[in-house]
């Protein structure tokens, strides 16, 4: 009589192996990017970040990679995985359906080394759009302990406040691919996040900042930013709604 396998046994699949191709590049020494191949075993739940760390631990400790939380919260481990910008900690090898996983540094960001890129420009443009509440009554007195807001008002911007500044949207953006001065989808989405906040009074200031030849008008609604966002921010929506304010479609 055959035994019925338990759920735990059903989930036990033998380890499989893949080739992990890691881009190696040091701008101080190398003239071009090189790839190093490593064969590693993985389980159904193994993430690309875990695979990279496995390689770093056992094969090549010199691989430069930035990571921290391992749970898609810190936004540190953005990279190009099989041609698309993704978070390495949020991408399982099993869901890529490929025997070869290629990891490269994010496009449109200067490379520090290997998979680690510089975030200065992203933080500069983020800061440029004034990512904080602008309000005359910022001092909290005993009478006004908080700025009240209805759930409907919260819904207007809560989606955009999920941004973890991982830079995947800027890496996927076709305008960022050619225009070094473009403010980028991350900063524009954050401009909308504060413009749409009922507590904020800085709408005119922010619209003036992004009303620039390298500002919001350089977005052509390709939508790639929204497709790669790991937190569901949908920057393309925020940018179009923001432009709706500027074109007079919205008040």
């Amino acid at each position: 009589m055959g035994q019925i396998p338990s759920m735990a046994e059903e989930n036990m699949t033998p380890s499989q192996s893949i080739t992990l191709r890691i881009a190696k590049y040091n701008p101080e020494h190398d003239s071009a990017k090189k790839f190093m191949d490593f064969t590693i075993t993985y389980e159904r739940w193994t993430t690309v970040l875990e695979a990279i760390l496995e390689v770093k631990k056992h094969f090549d400790h010199s691989i430069a990679v930035r990571y921290s939380c391992r749970q898609a919260t810190c936004g540190s481990c953005g990279m190009i995985i099989n041609g698309k910008p993704r978070l390495a900690c949020f991408t399982k090898i099993s869901e890529l359906n490929s025997n070869v996983i290629t990891v490269e540094p994010m496009n449109n960001f200067p490379i520090i080394r290997d998979l680690a890129v510089k975030f200065e420009r992203l933080f500069d443009t983020h800061h440029k759009v004034k990512p904080y509440l602008i309000h005359d009554d910022t001092e909290i007195t005993s009478d006004t302990k908080e700025f009240l807001q209805s759930p409907e008002e919260l819904e207007q911007y809560i989606q955009f406040s999920n941004c973890i500044k991982c830079g995947l949207c800027n890496s996927a953006c076709p305008t960022m691919a050619t225009d070094s001065s473009f403010v980028g989808p991350q900063a524009l989405a954050q401009a909308y996040r504060y413009v749409a906040d009922s507590r904020d009074k800085g709408k005119d200031q922010r619209l003036k900042i992004i009303d620039d030849s390298h500002g919001i008008w350089r977005c052509h609604f390709a939508g790639s930013c929204s497709q790669v966002c790991p937190k569901g921010v949908d920057p393309a929506m925020g940018i179009q709604l923001l432009r709706g304010y500027m074109l007079g479609f919205r008040s």
Binding site: Y157, Q159, A196, G244
Partner: peptide
């Protein structure tokens, strides 16, 4: 789309 028409409404993702 540039005017914000047909791009959906913001909502908790």
């Amino acid at each position: 789309g540039h005017g914000g028409v047909g791009v959906g409404k913001p909502a908790r993702p």
